[in-house]
């Protein structure tokens, strides 16, 4: 059975004199425990799509179902991670991590212990009483990950969470996230414009078109790559094959766009 279903979803942005169609007729279904990557150039509406899945933006047409229910009814089912950590600078790390429970008024001693355990699991010891500005970028993004996981969401939405990090930190975090998601058997959707990241981390890749955003192509990542941790999967021979295939496809799209544009100029 499908875990997350998008049924002919479209979204418009309205302004005073104009409107833009950000997303056009998107349908997809995601199985439980699956890792999906949404790959596309900036401005293709992938972040909008993620916000719709999170129930933060209300789509203008279509249906989004999480286990058969419309999203937006119980937000805690969804964990959302942004490009930057957006830790609250005036809160300690533990208070940041327990933000979700605080909003829903169910902070318990048990949850506090779980928070400390999760922090340790992502390699952060003795940081609970520190403030975010005392931590490095990679550490902060890990705290943001724990803040998302503490609510035990059914599905994780990752909006380019590694894009603001340096390369080494990014590779380390990819491994960590991938490992954690497998351990807790979480479903995840990753938005990225990095082909390598999409291949190394996900099970299926949805390539998106721009103007309006729609799904252009779906790639299945070979099983050999899925079972490896991201770092090793980047060295697998099949990785390069898929990379080249996607690369060529994107290049072809680019030149197609140019070819269409020339007569207008």
């Amino acid at each position: 059975m499908s875990f997350l279903t998008l049924d002919h979803v479209s979204h418009h942005y309205f302004s005073k004199n104009n409107y833009t169609k950000a997303l056009n007729n998107i349908s997809m279904s995601v199985k439980e425990g699956e890792f999906i990557a949404l790959l596309g150039p900036s401005g293709c509406g992938k972040s909008t799509l993620l916000s719709i899945m999170a129930g933060i933006i209300r789509h203008t047409e279509g249906k989004v179902l999480l286990q058969g229910d419309e999203v937006g009814e119980s937000e805690l089912d969804i964990g959302y991670m942004l490009q930057q950590d957006y830790l609250f600078p005036w809160k300690t790390i533990i208070d940041n991590v327990l933000l979700g429970p605080k909003i829903n008024r169910n902070i318990t001693e048990e949850l506090k212990e779980r928070a400390i355990k999760l922090l340790r699991e992502v390699g952060l010891n003795n940081v609970t009483l520190k403030y975010p500005n005392e931590l490095s970028g990679g550490m902060r993004q890990r705290v943001a990950l724990v803040r998302t996981l503490i609510n035990d969401p059914k599905i994780l939405l990752l909006d380019e969470p590694f894009s603001a990090l340096d390369y080494q930190t990014k590779l380390n975090l990819e491994d960590l996230v991938s490992d954690l998601l497998k351990t807790y058997h979480k479903t995840a959707i990753l938005v990225t414009h990095d082909i390598g990241e999409a291949i190394a981390m996900s099970d299926r890749i949805f390539m998106m078109n721009t103007n309006p955003g729609s799904i252009a192509k779906i790639y299945d990542v070979p099983l050999e790559l899925r079972n490896e941790i991201p770092f090793l999967s980047r060295r697998h021979p099949k990785y390069q094959i898929l990379f080249d295939k996607i690369w060529n496809e994107l290049e072809a799209k680019e030149s197609e766009k140019k070819a269409v544009k020339i007569p207008n100029e």
């Binding site: 999170a54 933060i56 937000e75 805690l76 959302y80 933000l99 829903n104 609510n151």
Partner: peptide
């Protein structure tokens, strides 16, 4: 920064 609100909204 509206993203702080976004984080909170994602927690409902």
């Amino acid at each position: 920064d509206p993203n702080y609100e976004k984080v909170l909204r994602s927690f409902g």
